[in-house]
Computed example of a mutant assay.
Amino acid sequence: MRARVALLGAVAAVGFAAPAHAYPSDVDTTFLASLQAAGITYNNADQAIVTAKMVCGYMAEGQPSPAVLDGLKARNPGLTTAHGAQFVGIAAQVYCPDQLVSNGAAGPSSQSE
């Protein structure tokens, strides 16, 4: 419960964060283009980038994806569950692909027949 409250507080602080930078990098541009392709809108590109990087930070700390998603939705009441989940997925793919967990479906089976 305490972790969830801390997560919500940190995500809420994103709205008050200073812009990360004036000119997006190629990675940031990829992220913003991916959001646009998914139909996810935002008011401030720098805040969207900061939030995405915070998502990666929470994932690196071991926060479960549902808690990260709940924090995003609490800070962005208009964000649907579907778009929130897409935001978390896009953030992870672009900024922290090492945090993505394989479910084993894509790789070869570890069991022998």
Rank of each mutant, 00 (worst) to 15 (best):
S110I: 07
S112A: 09
A67I: 11
T30L: 07
A85R: 11
Y58N: 15
A12L: 12
G78H: 09
D98T: 08
P24T: 05
F16S: 12
A74R: 03
S25M: 06
Q36M: 04
G89Q: 03
L72E: 08
V11Q: 07
M1T: 04
L69D: 02
A10W: 08
V27P: 07
K53G: 05
A12G: 14
C56K: 13
Y58R: 03
H83G: 08
R4H: 14
A12V: 09
V27N: 13
A52P: 04
Q99C: 06
F87P: 03
S102M: 07
Q47M: 10
P19Q: 02
P64Y: 05
S110R: 10
H83M: 12
P77L: 03
G62N: 14
Y42K: 08
F31S: 06
G107Q: 09
A18T: 06
Q111S: 11
L100E: 15
T41K: 07
M54H: 10
A105I: 04
A106R: 03
Y95M: 07
V68N: 03
R4K: 14
R2F: 15
G84P: 02
S65P: 13
A38F: 02
C96T: 00
D28K: 04
Y42G: 11
V55G: 05
Q111T: 15
A105F: 09
V11G: 00
I90F: 11
F87V: 01
V14N: 13
H83E: 11
S112F: 15
P64G: 04
L79F: 01
